[in-house]
Design a protein around this nucleic acid. Structure first.
Lengths: 198, 198
DNA sequence: TTACATAACGAACGTCCGTTAGGTACCATG
DNA sequence: CATGGTACCTAACGGACGTTCGTTATGTAA
């Protein structure tokens, strides 16, 4: 999962190391609260050197969100394809969504909290694909309702509720905490399935 | 609800008008993305004049979060006191929580997204009271489990799931949108009760 | 050896930042 | 009518910001 940004290895390219560090920094202090000098310091380089790899600070933020959406869309596609029937598919999609938010915690958090720091053009690009992602969940809920296995008052609202609930995991999850990502995912799946089942 | 920050009236004090405008601005551009000059412009004054009412930019942020927590704690207290039994109490608390996040959308959003912009001392103060708020929901869930009306695998995790799900409303709610705050609250209450009931 | 690519550097640019100092109208009250 | 607080103003401070510049060190292929 989250294969596009590898980076934890030392053999990652400079651009990947920059994106990884920027993800952590932006998440901790926010986009406007982080300076190119601080980011450079974390990477043991000078601020000017960052401009060899990226044209601007904005481009770094956009690259993070863009890759995150790549991973989200590819991941949910794989999850849905791996299962049969609305119930199993929703389970797989929710499970993926939660695990993604523990796995790529920083980047996932940014995808929601720093949309406001994108230029209008970049925001449009990101929102279009985020919509696409949300449509997957609306589709799963709707087909479950049609099949008579789900009962939800409002597909659109339920999809938002499910997504924001799981997305919230990125705001409080702590590595090495009481519950493992898998345990959290399992319990979230159960809570959600109980809520949407007929 | 949310009576502490009145302000929509023209008869609000200058300090209240500043907090109200700062809430909107910080939410739109973030704390570090908003300057005292921009805030002043929105209020048709000069940046220096803000310092007559507040000692610093940080004090403005803290005042917003502090008042928001006042309102949250007082509101959930009233909600819980207005009902009898774990089920009715949880319903009332959830309903309040959702309505608060549509009502005081900007301030509520900040209470989660701009914690990172607080000084350490201010953060400690805010987190202590946020913990207190979360404990209310954990308490409601636990007493429902003890009474045999709820069945949840993990009280702590379920409380976080419920809270972040409702909190998320502040991220997407739009005034004059498809659903009224009351309709959203009602449906959220139903989804949650269905998920936690035995 | 020549030629070019890669990846970094330190210094400087103009701009904006949060904040402070000092001044000035406008009141209400003596 | 004088006084003093209230609520704002203009001007300025030092510092940090994103970014650009010219330069350098190293590697690699012809």
């Amino acid at each position: 999962m989250a294969a596009t940004i590898v980076a934890t290895h030392e053999r990652a390219t400079a651009a990947e190391r920059i994106l990884r560090a920027a993800g952590v920094l932006f998440r901790e202090r926010g986009y406007h609260g982080s300076s190119m000098r601080t980011l450079a310091r974390a990477l043991r380089m000078e601020a000017a050197s960052l401009y060899y790899h990226f044209r601007s600070k904005q481009e770094i933020l956009f690259a993070i969100l863009d890759r995150t959406l790549d991973d989200l869309l590819a991941g949910v596609g794989r999850a849905v394809a791996s299962a049969d029937g609305p119930e199993a598919r929703l389970r797989a999609a929710v499970r993926f969504h939660v695990l993604f938010h523990t796995d790529s915690q920083h980047e996932a958090f940014l995808s929601h909290s720093e949309l406001r720091s994108l230029t209008q053009a970049n925001l449009r690009l990101v929102l279009t694909r985020r919509d696409e992602y949300e449509r997957v969940f609306r589709g799963l809920l709707a087909s479950g309702v049609r099949a008579g296995v789900f009962q939800v008052a409002d597909v659109r609202l339920t999809a938002m509720a499910v997504l924001t609930m799981c997305t919230g995991v990125a705001t409080w999850f702590a590595e090495g905490g009481r519950l493992s990502p898998e345990a959290i995912a399992d319990r979230y799946v159960e809570m959600i399935m109980k809520s949407v089942k007929r």
